[in-house]
């Protein structure tokens, strides 16, 4: 038990701190804190799903924001059509992301290395341009939601605290699920194919199937993050799936520590807090932010998670 605590203190501490947010938020500018923290948790969820691909599968997808966008547009389009039910939003978001993942993954998973990066980027951009062309739903400008998703006809998510807790619940559920998956037969094959695909084929595994399944799982989780994101911002636009968003997600995963899962959460917290603080400090904050990120990646091998758990390896 004590050993386990020593090994797991970082994810435990992270979730504990995130759980305390609604309690501590009233001490400051409550709605600002809750909205910022909701954004962090939602981005953490998207980054977590991407870590399954990059960290566990070695598959650097440069189109992950597309899945986030699919989730956001499910909310936007359904709400605009008068369907406000959150369950319907989630179901459509997950189904559409699954379809997108299977269709694009069937092609992308046949490539590797730089080609894989480029092809996922291309598919992401395709969806981005498709969204800008959706003139019925705002085109370039996007759409403002009439309200948040409802739950069984009730407007429970209208409370910032409830929305935050819903996002945190989704993050915790996804984290626990992905941990189990990583330690399963499937996860073992996925990691093996990352490290040495030829060896895997020589013992009888076809990496393609396992990678495609990981892509599917990852896309569906990112779509849930998209549904939450739309609810947090109250607004849906193509910008959600711009390639820069995909790049940021990759960055967050690398910054946090590839393949550790909780590293993605840590990365999201660090990235968004740094962005927030620096943008308040100066309008030229990007000039500082870029080099800071590069330094962090250079000097924190294994990411922030690796830095914090150094010496605590079992």
């Amino acid at each position: 038990m004590a050993r386990r605590l020593r090994r797991e203190w970082l994810p435990l501490g992270l979730f504990l701190a995130l759980a305390l947010v609604p309690v501590l938020a009233p001490l400051g500018p409550q709605s600002f804190i809750l909205s910022l923290m909701t954004r962090i948790v939602v981005v953490a969820l998207a980054a977590l799903s991407l870590d399954l691909l990059i960290g566990k599968g070695g598959l650097v997808s440069f189109g992950h924001a597309a899945c986030l966008g699919i989730g956001a547009y499910a909310v936007g389009i359904l709400s605009a059509e008068g369907v406000t039910d959150g369950g319907a939003h989630l179901a459509v978001a997950i189904a559409a992301a699954a379809f997108f993942a299977l269709a694009t993954g069937a092609v992308a998973m046949r490539t590797d290395g730089v080609h894989f990066i480029m092809i996922t980027l291309a598919f992401g951009q395709m969806l981005y341009f498709l969204a800008t062309a959706l003139s019925a739903y705002g085109g370039d400008d996007g759409i403002t939601l009439p309200g948040r998703s409802t739950v069984l006809g009730r407007d429970v998510l209208a409370s910032d605290t409830v929305l935050y807790l819903a996002a945190l619940g989704a993050l915790l559920a996804a984290y626990l699920l992905l941990r189990r998956i990583a330690a399963s037969r499937f996860g073992r094959v996925l990691e093996g194919a990352r490290d040495n695909p030829v060896r895997m084929e020589a013992i009888g595994f076809r990496p393609f199937r396992f990678r495609l399944a990981a892509y599917l799982i990852s896309a569906m989780i990112a779509a849930v993050a998209g549904v939450l994101l739309a609810n947090q911002t109250g607004f849906v636009s193509p910008a959600t799936m711009a390639w820069q968003r995909s790049g940021e997600l990759i960055f967050i995963v690398v910054l946090g520590g590839l393949g550790s899962l909780h590293g993605a959460i840590l990365g999201a917290i660090a990235f968004i807090l740094a962005e927030e603080l620096l943008s308040h400090w100066s309008e030229h904050w990007r000039i500082v932010f870029g080099p800071l990120l590069i330094l962090a990646v250079l000097f924190a091998r294994g990411g922030l998670a690796g830095l914090l758990t150094k010496g605590a390896r079992p």
Binding site: A183, S184, R185, F186, R188, V189, G204
Partner: peptide
Amino acid sequence: QARSGSSFRFLSPV
């Protein structure tokens, strides 16, 4: 594992 049953098992620890 490659020769003993499906590897599409996601939840039990290998």
